[in-house]
């Protein structure tokens, strides 16, 4: 697993550090750094919690996703 933190986007809030159950991240000079990427099991909780959308995981298994709201997506498709 490769984890990239966009250093320019990260606001150093430390939420990913607290939330990751595998202690993958550490704050260094107010920026999150993935110090134990091999411990990541791909839950993507960190993506959900990061307010800056600063995280990127490569080589992850994306679980099947059925929980989109069809009506909302149809509306979005019209707009986007």
């Amino acid at each position: 697993m490769e984890i990239h933190v966009d250093k320019d986007a990260c606001v150093g809030c430390g939420l990913c550090v607290k939330d990751c159950p595998m202690h993958v991240y550490e704050l260094q000079d107010n920026v999150s750094v993935a110090v134990r990427p091999n411990n990541c099991m791909g839950c993507l909780s960190c993506h959900e919690i990061c307010p800056a959308q600063a995280l990127e995981h490569r080589g992850i298994y994306a679980a099947r996703r059925h929980y989109i709201d069809i009506k909302v997506c149809e509306m979005l498709r019209k707009v986007v």
Binding site: G42, C43, L44, S45, H47, E48, I60, Y61, A63
Partner: peptide
Amino acid sequence: HTGPNACL
């Protein structure tokens, strides 16, 4: 742990 993409 429970997450949006996987649970341990």
